[in-house]
Design a protein around this nucleic acid. Structure first.
Lengths: 294, 294
DNA sequence: GTTGGTCATAGACATGGTCTATAGCTCCTG
DNA sequence: CAGGAGCTATAGACCATGTCTATGACCAAC
């Protein structure tokens, strides 16, 4: 007798043993009593063992039935726990959302959405992994995050990118350069001042380098830094003119510790995208988050 | 979405996750790949969640799939352990056999069969519960033993009794009564001697009382004892003539410390029966044992 | 005896699980 | 770059089998 039972039979067995009645088991399973009777018989035949004593009040486990029950009970409990867990995941009562991106984007863009998301789905654990754009892409490909928030453009056939926020980068300076506060500068004249840029491998740096090149100039920074906070701090202290995302310095602009330098040409805005693996299904939490950001 | 999944789907899920391939899972389950693909889809639809990433090398669990797997894996392991256990019970590699009866019957009749049984099925644990016939019947009805070995006749509609051994009871005496060693006594003349009988409620006692009554006599013991060992011991010491099962004193008869008193009428043999609950299925071990005794 | 509860059995029916055939995709190789 | 060899997904047909209804047999209680 090969052990090739329909596992469905164990569900029937479980309820029959649990309720001590084929009739009750049938009700619990929304079946008829003969179906349950038949199912139990199938199981008994497949083992070549009798699992229940039948009497006029219902059924009772035999010695062998009890042994089977001790295993099947555990098994069924695990399954129903699993089903509850799945339902919870579906309802976003449960689960985790892992996002990758840069610290400054998190701080200025993602945070309000995260707050909203967390408020709506307090059961979902949030994991934020910061890194540079290439690092975030690696995280995604390695499956360590569900989605990445990075500056566009991203060209990678494995990734799907949804454009979301628009960012406006600009040049800012502090009190030391007060003389140009109300002037409108050309790109060329800007090059006379000491410029502070983000490190070479960043998207923002590549973008501004390209803009100057398009106009025939080459921008070379006096200082290179690795974080937006330093970009801001150096500008405030008058070490130079920083190229920074306007939205990241809104506080400083407001309080007047920095001012934006007006240029005679418009600087094209850049975009932030939410990227995910192409052709890979998203977790419920991830797709809900993306929906929310839209 | 009601959680009314076919548990069979979990088996498919388990193998798909375990092998990382729908094709492999299909082979393991003796199904075709489309069937497995369909089954997984059903499961995913029922949860409203994606369980696997599909790629060109096979499938891989998603976050949610992994959570499901952690439960289902345990569950499936329990089930297959249970199936192995059932097969072992069927093969009598495993299990227990609980027998009730009197010590003397065990010693002289059941023991050789128990030895044989134990040799053939060393995995079966043996439990011997000794007691009087009514106690053994109670044990049976309470489900504390699988079968009882008692003296016939038993009249109880709930019980099924299989006649098995034949016992010959007889009167024995020791050296003190050497005078009658080679005589043939009548029942009446026997009554002149002091008789030692088993206690009033025993089957053997009832049987001999009845025999004498049928011949118009009344047998009244000088001494009443509660164990076969005492019956033998008292006879050896010459305290009287004991009525005892011949097979229980075969050693003493052989060595000559006791001799059997010959009578002018035959004493009817009594029988030992194996009793079980009527209409209750036997464990594999119990039915195998009964078969062996036959 | 009758009623109301159990489980078992028989036979009909239709659901749905499984199949074959095929398409689409990715990766690897000559 | 074309072709092959993996993989999974889809469509549609079929029939096995799980489920039903109807009924029987049994037991306990009133």
């Amino acid at each position: 007798m090969s052990m090739t039972n329909n596992y469905e039979l164990y569900k029937v067995f479980y309820w029959a043993a649990k309720t001590g009645s084929l009739t009750q088991a049938a009700k619990a399973l929304y079946l008829t009593q003969p179906s349950v009777s038949h199912a139990i018989k199938q199981l008994e035949d497949s083992f070549g063992l009798i699992l229940f004593y039948r009497n006029s009040k219902g059924v009772e486990l035999t010695q062998e039935g009890s042994i089977l029950y001790s295993y099947i009970e555990q098994s069924q409990i695990l399954i129903s726990t699993a089903e509850e867990k799945m339902a919870a995941l579906k309802n976003l009562d449960n689960g985790e959302l892992r996002i990758g991106g840069s610290d400054s984007l998190f701080k200025h863009y993602v945070l309000p959405y995260l707050e909203e998301f967390h408020e709506k789905h307090p059961g979902i654990k949030l994991h934020l992994n910061h890194g540079t754009t290439p690092e975030v892409i690696t995280f995604l490909k390695e499956g360590r995050i569900d989605l990445g928030v990075v500056r566009m453009p991203i060209v990678d056939s494995q990734l799907e990118v949804r454009e979301s926020f628009k960012l406006q980068d600009c040049f800012v300076a502090g009190a030391r350069f007060a003389e140009i506060k109300n002037k409108v500068l050309s790109l060329e004249s800007l090059l006379q001042y000491p410029v502070i840029l983000f490190s070479r491998n960043s998207r923002a740096r590549m973008a501004i380098t390209e803009i100057f090149q398009n106009y025939g100039y080459t921008i070379k920074p006096e200082i290179e830094v690795g974080s937006v906070d330093l970009l801001i701090e150096f500008a405030r202290r008058g070490l130079g003119i920083s190229y920074v995302t306007r939205e990241f310095v809104s506080k400083e602009l407001e309080e007047g510790s920095l001012f934006e330098i007006r240029l005679d040409v418009p600087l094209p805005p850049s975009h932030v995208g939410i990227m995910t693996m192409r052709n890979m299904p998203l977790t419920s939490a991830a797709s809900r988050f993306i929906e929310l950001v839209r």
